[in-house]
């Protein structure tokens, strides 16, 4: 096996600088599949429709608690997001805030419109009790890993994303389970490095992570080509009043109960450490578990300590292995209750 599984790597001729730049340039835009583009177009239409359905704009009063100073902001109901509030408070606050805490209890995605007058806190990675932020970060890493898996394989490898389990930072790695049309694929060091580099490149595009709450029919329309997600959507919707929360980054869309971090620029060091084949009864091909480890950009760790984390992430993560039956409600990629 060599790196030729991945897009664009085979096309790189040696010793010709001109060709390399051309290929890379092409590669940068070509790796988004037609299906992803359609999905993101649907997402865009739906979010536009929801924005227009707001109608008459009402004002809400948002109390901000925290540095640099407490303030009260007049925002628009169903339109303004915590990120809009953060922009009023300054660039530093806007760039570092990972997730908002509404009324001191509900974690709120930074790009999700606020629904009523409330008080918000903006959480970032270096706070005294960052457990919620860490979990959000880990979930977002899984989500972004899914985006990378979706984009980076060549057309002759059929990729169907399955799901990712509830984020658990203590397990040492974030996970995405995906179905590949490859039998007994054992990734080499080079392939893992290419995957990591793809993820780094993807995150350097600084895409915001958007959020949209839709009904089950629309979600089924978006994921009509993915048998796993199609199967998961009804049970997710049933436990969430018929609604499904979608997240979008770049052209990639996924289901998750959220919340996610604000922007892909928050990711600092990223390693995709290992890929395991799982024993499951899911039809249509083997399921592979992609594992990685990552740290936010604001946390700098020396390479020796980071290599310890990398080595740990190489071991199989003991999280629940997906099966044909039993979409468990502990599963984080499914909506359980509206915390997003």
């Amino acid at each position: 096996m060599n790196t030729s599984l991945f897009l664009g790597k085979q096309a790189l001729p040696k010793f010709s600088k001109c060709n390399i730049t051309k290929t890379l340039h092409k590669r940068f835009f070509a790796n988004v599949s037609e299906e992803s583009k359609q999905q993101s177009e649907l997402f865009r239409f739906e979010s536009k429709r929801q924005r227009e359905a707001v109608g008459r704009i009402e004002k809400i009063e948002v109390k901000y608690e925290g540095p640099p100073e407490e303030s009260t902001l007049m925002m628009n109901k169903y339109l303004s997001t915590p990120y809009d509030c953060a922009k009023h408070l300054g660039e530093i606050v806007a760039n570092r805030s990972a997730v908002a805490l509404v009324n001191g209890e509900t974690l709120w995605h930074m790009h999700k419109p606020l629904e009523d007058s409330c008080s918000i806190q903006l959480l970032h990675y270096n706070i005294p009790q960052p457990a919620a932020v860490n979990k959000t970060y880990w979930r977002s890493c899984s989500f972004l890993l899914g985006a990378v898996i979706n984009n980076c394989f060549k057309d002759n490898v059929n990729v169907q994303l399955h799901s990712f389990p509830s984020p658990n930072v203590r397990s040492g790695s974030f996970i995405y389970d995906a179905q590949l049309s490859l039998d007994n694929w054992m990734p080499t060091e080079t392939e893992l490095r290419v995957l990591s580099a793809e993820m780094v490149k993807f995150c350097r595009q600084n895409n915001p992570i958007e959020c949209l709450n839709v009904d089950a029919d629309f979600a089924l329309l978006v994921f009509k080509n993915n048998p796993h997600k199609t199967q998961q959507i009804p049970s997710i919707a049933a436990s969430n009043k018929g609604r499904v929360t979608l997240f979008k980054v770049g052209h990639h869309i996924d289901i998750s109960r959220g919340p996610m971090i604000t922007n892909t620029s928050h990711l600092g060091r990223i390693t995709i450490a290992n890929v395991f084949k799982l024993n499951t009864d899911i039809p249509g091909g083997p399921i592979y578990r992609f594992q990685g480890v990552s740290l936010p950009y604001s946390i700098v760790l020396n390479h020796v300590a980071y290599s310890i984390l990398e080595n740990r992430a190489k071991k199989l993560n003991p999280a629940r292995i997906p099966g044909l039956h039993g979409v468990s409600d502990e599963d984080g990629s499914f909506v359980k209750h509206a915390v997003a």
Partner: peptide, 10 residues
């Protein structure tokens, strides 16, 4: 409780 410390402790 910071993320890198959680990972290192584990």
């Amino acid at each position: 409780n910071l993320i890198h410390n959680v990972l290192l402790d584990e």
